[in-house]
Simulated assay, not measured.
Amino acid sequence: MTQRPPRPVRVLASALAAGALLTTAACSDGDDSGAESADTTRISSSPLAQESPAALTPAGARAALVTEADLEGDWDQVKNASTWHDSLLVGKVDVADFLSAKANAADCQKLLDALYDDDLLGKPSGASALTGFEEGDSRLLYQVAAYDKAALNTSLNWLKSLPVKCDQFTATDSSGGKRTVQVTESSLPKEGDARQGLQVTVQGTSGGAPTTLTLDVAVVRVGTDAITITNGGFDGADSDSTKTAVELGTERLKDVQAGRTPSADPGEID
C-alpha cells in the first residue's frame, strides 16, 4: 500500500503558495499606494480618532461659563468679578504651627495666596474666561481655562493633599492680627475626568468685629481644560449652588469641546 505524504506538508505548502500569490498581486498592482492611503483615511476618520476635544478658544471659554439661569437661588451676574479679592485671605502663615512638617507651611501659604489671586490651578496655558455672581453677601466666582495637562494634574494632586497638610493653621495679617484657617475636603458630583472639593474657613476680624469667611472650592478637570469655582462669604457657603455649577458647568464645557453650542436653558438635575 502506497503511503500518502503527511497532510500538514500539503497544507503548509498551500498556505505558502497563497501567500506568494497575494504578495505577487500586491507588488504588481500599480495603485497599491492609493489603496493603502484609502485604508489610512478610513482609520483616521473612525469615531475613536475623533474623540479628542478641540483646543479651547477664547469664544469657547466664554460660552462654557455658567449663567444666572444655570444657578439655583437669586444669584445676580456682575461685571467686576475679576477685581474681587478678600482681605481676610491676606496673611503670613505661622510656621510654628507645623512642628513636625514645616514644609507644609509653604503649601498653606500657597493656598491663601492662590485664593486671593484666583489662580488655584496656576497660570492657564491657553484660553480662559471668568465670571462672577452675587447673592446677598455671598459671591460665586466661576472660571474656565485650558492648561498644560501635566501641570493641571500636579495642581489637582496638590489640592487633594491640603486637607491633611493644612487642616488647621494660623495666619498673621500686617497689623499682627491672628486668623485661624481650617481646610476640609468636601464632596462633589462625579463630573469630568477628575475633581477636588474643599471647604476653607477663615476666622478673624473685619471692621473690629469677629467674623468667619467660609468658601466652597471646587475644581473639575475635563481633558486638559478645567473649571474652578469659589463660592461663599461671611454668611457661609451655599453648597447646593456649588454642586449645581459643577454639574451644569461641566456639561457646558463638554458641549464646547464637542463643537456644540451650550443650551441657554439648564437641564434637569437628577
Rank of each mutant, 00 (worst) to 15 (best):
Gln3Cys: 07
Gln3Pro: 03
Pro6Met: 07
Arg10Trp: 13
Val11Gly: 04
Val11Cys: 05
Ala13Ile: 15
Ala13Gly: 06
Ala15Glu: 05
Ala20Phe: 13
Leu21His: 05
Leu22Thr: 12
Leu22Arg: 05
Thr23Asp: 05
Cys27Phe: 13
Asp29Ser: 09
Asp29Tyr: 15
Gly30Glu: 12
Asp31Met: 09
Asp32Tyr: 13
Asp32Ser: 12
Ala35Pro: 02
Ala35Asn: 11
Glu36Ser: 11
Glu36Tyr: 10
Asp39Met: 11
Ser45Leu: 14
Ala54Ile: 12
Ala54Gln: 13
Ala54Asp: 11
Ala55Asp: 13
Leu56Arg: 00
Ala59Tyr: 06
Gly60Gln: 01
Gly60Glu: 01
Leu65Gln: 02
Val66His: 00
Gly73Ala: 08
Trp75Met: 03
Asp76Met: 10
Gln77Val: 13
Gln77Lys: 14
Lys79Gly: 13
Lys79Tyr: 09
Trp84Glu: 08
His85Leu: 07
Gly91Gln: 01
Gly91Pro: 00
Val93Gln: 04
Val95Met: 08
Val95Thr: 14
Asp97Ser: 14
Ala101Pro: 03
Lys102Tyr: 07
Cys108Met: 06
Gln109Tyr: 03
Gln109Met: 08
Leu111Val: 09
Leu112Lys: 04
Leu115Arg: 01
Tyr116Ser: 06
Tyr116Gln: 06
Asp119Lys: 13
Leu120Thr: 02
Leu121Ser: 04
Leu121Trp: 00
Pro124Cys: 07
Ser125Arg: 10
Ala129Asn: 06
Glu134Lys: 15
Glu135Ser: 12
Ser138Pro: 03
Leu141Asp: 05
Ala146Glu: 07
Tyr147Cys: 00
Tyr147Ala: 00
Asp148Trp: 04
Leu162Phe: 01
Leu162Lys: 02
Pro163Lys: 06
Lys165Pro: 04
Lys165Trp: 07
Gln168Asn: 15
Gln168Arg: 15
Phe169Asp: 02
Thr170Asp: 11
Thr172Leu: 10
Ser175Val: 13
Gly176Ser: 06
Gly176Thr: 09
Arg179Glu: 10
Gln182Trp: 09
Gln182Glu: 15
Glu185Thr: 14
Ser187Glu: 14
Ser187Arg: 13
Pro189Gln: 05
Glu191His: 02
Gly192Gln: 03
Gly197Phe: 02
Thr201Ile: 06
Gln203His: 11
Gln203Ala: 15
Gly208Val: 10
Pro210Lys: 12
Thr212Phe: 08
Ala218Tyr: 04
Val219Trp: 00
Arg221Tyr: 04
Thr224Ser: 15
Asp225Ser: 12
Ile227Thr: 05
Thr228Pro: 02
Thr228Trp: 03
Ile229His: 00
Thr230Asn: 03
Asp235Val: 09
Ala237Pro: 02
Asp238Ser: 06
Ser239Asp: 15
Arg252Asn: 02
Lys254Val: 10
Asp255Glu: 08
Val256Arg: 00
Ala258Asp: 08
Gly259Met: 08
Ala264Gln: 11
Asp265Thr: 15
Gly267Ser: 12
